[in-house]
């Protein structure tokens, strides 16, 4: 298929190889391998409990995987092995930012402060680790000016300009989602991981989110990996979809391919007992057609 040649030419930004994560007796992720390509919006979908968030936590350093390798390749060609880094280094050094399924804003701080906290490392350096800033050096003032400009840029994009000085906790739900994305973008990532960004949004907010994600990719060239249950978002904006079930990859390809993959349909809708044979047959057919797709 055209898809195969397409992926060949594409440059992977994130490579997950043989990733496994075990919690006691539970194999949350079992030998998962996939790639996310630079400039793409990659969606990670699957039924509840498939291990999507666990994959995220492994990528962003919040969990240490039991096995496997996660390689992040930056634009400049520098490679990072994310499974070896602690969570804050994944953001600071490897330039991978993330959001959370249950929004984690600094609710007592204002919207603008939230975005400034995201630029902590840059400002810390500019303030000479606080000492020069405390003495009122102009370099720090300049850096703060730039940071506020960047914050304004993202406030504008996320359509939150008029709420800049309100406490983040006072924003409506949809705005909090957008703010969390804006905050993640303020760390200037090359790879952005979004954990269910459309959860709890109404259709209009969902559309606005699609716009925001598209413009992030277009204007900053940031590659995006997102977990999502809202298929209208997934099918609309993603270039590449990876489907998980029980910690294993069951499908991988462009949205159209995935949508019609019988394995995916079976995973999502379930199949009647007497259809199992039939589905297995179909699966085997596909496995023969696309041998690169089988893992075991």
């Amino acid at each position: 298929m055209a898809l195969e040649t397409d992926t060949m030419t594409k440059d992977p930004i994130l490579k997950v190889e043989h990733l496994s994560m075990r919690f006691g007796g539970l194999m949350a992720i079992n030998d998962l391998s996939f790639e996310a390509y630079r400039g793409d919006i990659t969606a990670l979908i699957g039924p509840n409990g498939a291990g999507k968030t666990t994959v995220f936590n492994c990528i962003t350093g919040f969990y240490k995987p039991t096995m496997g390798m996660i390689t992040m390749r930056q634009k400049a060609g520098k490679e990072y092995l994310l499974e070896r880094m602690s969570d804050f280094e994944v953001n600071r050094n490897a330039k991978v930012a993330r959001t959370f399924q249950n929004i984690r804003l600094f609710s007592g701080l204002t919207v603008l402060e939230n975005l400034l906290v995201a630029q902590h490392n840059k400002l810390m350096l500019a303030s000479g680790y606080t000492i020069l800033g405390l003495l009122g050096f102009p370099t720090y003032k300049r850096a703060v000016g730039q940071s506020i400009e960047q914050a304004k840029y993202w406030l504008d994009k996320a359509n939150l300009m008029d709420r800049a000085d309100d406490p983040a906790g006072d924003l409506p739900y949809g705005a909090q989602r957008r703010l969390e994305i804006a905050r993640a973008m303020c760390t200037e990532p090359e790879f952005l991981c979004l954990d269910e960004p459309a959860a709890g949004l109404n259709p209009r907010e969902s559309l606005a989110l699609n716009e925001l994600l598209r413009s992030i990719r277009k204007d900053t060239g940031t590659s995006i990996l997102l977990i999502e249950h809202d298929m209208s978002v997934v099918m609309e904006i993603s270039d590449h979809v990876v489907v998980l079930e029980y910690g294993q990859k069951i499908s991988d390809g462009n949205p159209d391919f995935v949508k019609h993959d019988p394995k995916v349909i079976a995973a999502y809708l379930g199949v009647e007992d007497d259809e199992v044979e039939e589905v297995i047959e179909q699966i085997e057919e596909i496995a023969v057609v696309a041998p690169g797709d089988t893992q075991k």
Binding site: T60, F62, D87, F88, E89, V90, N91, R92, A97, R98, T99, F100, R104, L105, F106, S107, G108, L109, V117, A118, H120, N121, R183, A184, T187
Partner: peptide, 10 residues
């Protein structure tokens, strides 16, 4: 406010 969010921001 939130330690985990802090870590996610580097």
């Amino acid at each position: 406010e939130d330690e985990i969010a802090c870590r996610s921001l580097g």
